[in-house]
Amino acid sequence: MAHDREILRMIWEGQIAICFQADSEEIVGLQQPENFYLMVSRLSYLPLVTDKVKKYFSRYISHEQQDGNIWFDYNGIPLKLHYPIGVLYDLLYPEEDSVPWYLTIHFSKFPEDVLVKLSTRDLLESYFMSCLKEADVLKHRGQIISSMQKKDHNQLWQGLSNDKFDQFWAINRRLMEANGDQETFKYIPVRFYADEDTYIQKLITPINKNGQKKTVGEMMIEMSTPLKKVVEVRTQGISIHDGANLQWLSEHLSYPDNFLHLFLVYESNI
């Protein structure tokens, strides 16, 4: 059960300052547009928060490109539209002193070989619901999400896309409750990131061999190999204490897609 409501609220309110710049090659006319500054929620997705950005820059680009698929890059790296913004930020780890985060918006040349075209709200919504379903398969064999009604599913998506904490958590609370009379989930839905290409998923149990709740420290050992030792775990922009237990972490520090997105820092042997 999610008792530490204040922590849920703090995680929900986590924001990133972004400075959007135009792709100078797409600008028609002599005048380059000014940059566009925006505070965005770590938990949201780029296509959900950039309507205003798109509208602003579309005045400066040619008509043929107006309806193109929008995408963004940071230092030449295309940003995955279906990753939560906080995950993208932590993954690309901008220099700490370079606040805000400088991103370039593009209206053309969508890089189809590297980016999934989840650029509309509808596609993003169905992807988001799939994540919730997968997470619930891991936590409760999918029994909670499948017992919900369509309106509950809508409420989760609306709560996230309209940034309404109470609306979202009124439903999400049920997904974050442990199994029946037990104190934990079956497995912890988690995606591990070590580099920017992709993530790793494994079955991670919330209980250790001795029947106690597994700690982050124990999971770090589980994720280490003789050659690569995990020395730090980060998520939501913070370093996680190795004494925290995974069940608590999953209930409180997961993204709205119900997954923990954990960044593993390996000891460098060089």
Binding site: K80, H82, V116, S126, Y127, S130, C131, K133, E134, V137, L138, G142, Y187, T198, Y199, I200, Q201, K202, L203
Partner: peptide
Amino acid sequence: VNQTFAPAPDQIIKNLYECH
């Protein structure tokens, strides 16, 4: 996957196999 959810197009088979 298992008649339950649609994985992301860029999800790798290894991750799905490990978990499902």
